[in-house]
Amino acid sequence: MQRLKLFIPLIIFLVLAAFFFVVQKRIGSGDYDPQAMPSALLDKPLPAFELPDLLRGDPVSAAVLGGRIALVNVWATWCPSCHYEHPYLVRLAQQGVLILGVDYKDEPDKARQWLLEKGNPYVAVVDDRSGTLGLDLGVTGAPETYLIDARGVVRLRYQGPLDERVWRETLQPLIERLQQEARGA
């Protein structure tokens, strides 16, 4: 028993080392993000907004989604991860996913140029150059994506660029569930 006590520090060290190793691995594989925080908007309606459309200039509101399940994607030309994310959004749009863009604290000319060059996956792009909608959404940076259900309620917030993996593991299963819910109701 006395002998065993000598090993307590070693045992504590091993337990902590194992714990940190697992956490570090999960960060590396993207399963755990220490910076991610749950959105305060979760299960609450998308905040009301009416801001000009980046391309057409007429006011846009959530009505443009027409009560369909949609993604709201916050992006900007100053955001490096948005460059990485954009081609995937274009692919999703081609598959028929409804995406509303929020051009967050950006220069409209640069943003229009970006859409011209890279393609436009958005059903509409909100010109949020002052960041007011971003503030109401609780955005902390770009890109960020919100999943809105048919009733206009925020069901998921994803911080960081979307890609095949995030779509397959997180978004798609939830969207399928929401579709079943909508059919069942």
Binding site: M37, P38, S39, A40, L41, L135, D136, L137, G138, T140
Partner: peptide, 8 residues
């Protein structure tokens, strides 16, 4: 502030 960013 809490409504937007949570109690965080």
């Amino acid at each position: 502030m809490v409504a937007r960013y949570g109690q965080f």
